[in-house]
Amino acid sequence: MMNLYKRGMIFVTFLGSCLSIALVAAALGTNYWVISQARRTPNPTESDGHIHFGLFQGKKELNVAYGWRTYQFSVLELMRQDIDFMIYGYWLTTVVTTVISLLFTTAAAVFAVINTATTPIGTFTGVPGLYLWNSLTIILQMFAVSFWVAQFSKKLQHNVMSLEDRKNLWTSEGMASYGHSFWFMVAAVIVHIINLNFIYFGTSDSREKKSTVPVTEEKGNGAIMLY
């Protein structure tokens, strides 16, 4: 029964890792790390704009009382054209840590399945490995989240417009916010923290110790009765 409980708890972490893989993949593949509105400073009441972008691609819709115009753009190309658009080092760190965290999440899922089916004795393949892969994933995902928060704080909350748009007096000052792609990463961190809790409570020796207490007491009582 105890072994079944342990394997069941570990299998739950496999499901959690699969959810995390989906969340991180969605964060990489969707273009809503930042969303913002925009206005032209000379005529803010007659102009309107909507911008959203992810780590690689984005979309903006601008209207200056002549109808909406839609533009697709590359985030990397914008950074090449305008060094003030984003801090390249922060962007690169966010991308790299997000991608590597996806690899560690996959490892956590694979070894969770292995530990559900068998009892590996290796450090990296057994229960210590489950702690390792999930912990490394949390660290990497926290790096991605932290560097994007720093990026937003230093650059994106003040401006998400291209250099050309700024020359045309467009501004997004104070109108930007985090999009759901960013929150996917935050959710993935929470999932792995939950995974660590399942691993701890599923593999802790405390339950086994509790289950052996009655047996010990019974033996002690038997010895007393014998004397």
Rank of each mutant, 00 (worst) to 15 (best):
W170D: 09
A22N: 02
C18N: 02
V191A: 12
S135R: 09
I199P: 06
T98S: 13
A65N: 15
E61L: 04
V95L: 14
M79T: 07
G222D: 09
T123E: 11
A117S: 10
A150L: 11
A65E: 13
F85R: 08
V113M: 06
Y5R: 14
F201W: 09
Y178L: 14
E173M: 08
L156M: 12
F198G: 03
V96T: 11
T119H: 12
L55W: 09
L226R: 13
P44F: 10
R207I: 06
N159T: 12
T105Y: 00
A109I: 06
V189G: 01
E218V: 06
D205W: 05
V95T: 11
N134S: 11
V186C: 07
Q37K: 15
L130V: 02
L4S: 14
E173R: 11
M175V: 02
T123N: 11
Q151E: 15
Y32W: 10
V110C: 09
F85M: 09
G8T: 09
Y178K: 09
W68V: 12
T98L: 10
I193R: 11
D48G: 12
Y131Q: 09
N43D: 13
A223P: 00
L103T: 14
A109E: 03
G222F: 07
I121C: 05
I83F: 13
K210P: 00
